[in-house]
């Protein structure tokens, strides 16, 4: 058997060209990106933790900063994002089964749930700005908070674009089993965004100061 034939067989079996590690280069690159993204969020979360009690005297509210959070509302947003991870794995599962229609529906559902989450974040920021007069530069806490949650929101938005790009970019070529790796890569990014929120929700919203 020639090496070209063997390579083609491996590609057909695994959906990617043969590599020494058995992992596709695209998947390895995505994991490297996610590992590096841990550093970005690590720095942002660190900054927030260092500044969370650092509130200057010009803070327009006297009570603890935690009181501005609407925990029931944010909990609902967190639940929506968690469920979007479920719809994402169901999309990948459907594509792996070559069930294109279900794959597209689950991908669109995931994007829709992501949009709900972003809508919730926009609402939260608006309430902070209008009801509590908390701007980006009001104090170091607000700067750290908006930067951390804002960066996460940007990640979710990019994820939504990737999901929509996957659905609408494959209208002609189809979303069959051969595209499973593409869906898996988008899914990895989406789940990463989800686990970052798991940390943010606990550290920023739930853990009491002091």
């Amino acid at each position: 058997m020639s090496s070209a034939t063997a390579t083609a067989e491996v590609e057909a079996d695994h959906g990617h060209p043969e590599t020494n590690s058995g992992i596709s280069n695209n998947k390895l690159a995505m994991w490297l990106f996610l590992a590096s993204d841990c550093l970005l969020f690590g720095a942002l979360i660190s900054t927030f933790l260092l500044y969370r009690t650092n509130i200057s005297d010009n803070t327009p509210f006297s009570s603890a900063v935690d009181d501005v959070f609407d925990i029931p509302f944010t909990s609902l947003s967190s639940f929506v994002l968690l469920m979007s991870s479920l719809t994402m794995v169901l999309a990948l599962s459907a594509v792996n089964r070559d069930d294109e229609r279900s794959g597209r529906i689950w991908l669109l559902t995931t994007a829709f749930l992501g949009m709900i989450f972003i809508g919730g974040q926009v609402y939260e920021f608006t309430v902070f700005a209008t009801e509590y007069d908390l701007g980006y530069s009001t104090n170091t806490w607000t700067s750290a908070f908006y930067t951390l949650t804002g960066f996460h929101g940007v990640h979710v938005s990019v994820g939504i674009l990737l999901l929509l790009g996957t659905v609408f970019g494959t209208r002609k070529s189809g979303l069959g089993k051969e595209k499973a790796e593409n869906v898996e890569l988008v899914g990895l990014y989406w789940h990463f965004v989800d686990i970052v929120w798991v940390i943010i929700f606990t550290i920023v919203y739930l853990i009491p100061i002091g």
């Binding site: 992992i23 994991w31 590992a35 841990c38 550093l39 690590g42 720095a43 979360i45 660190s46 933790l49």
Partner: peptide, 19 residues
Amino acid sequence: SKILTGLFVFGLILAIIVY
């Protein structure tokens, strides 16, 4: 593959070190 777990855990450990 365990390589992927290693990569991700490495990133996490670096992030914790940053903190």
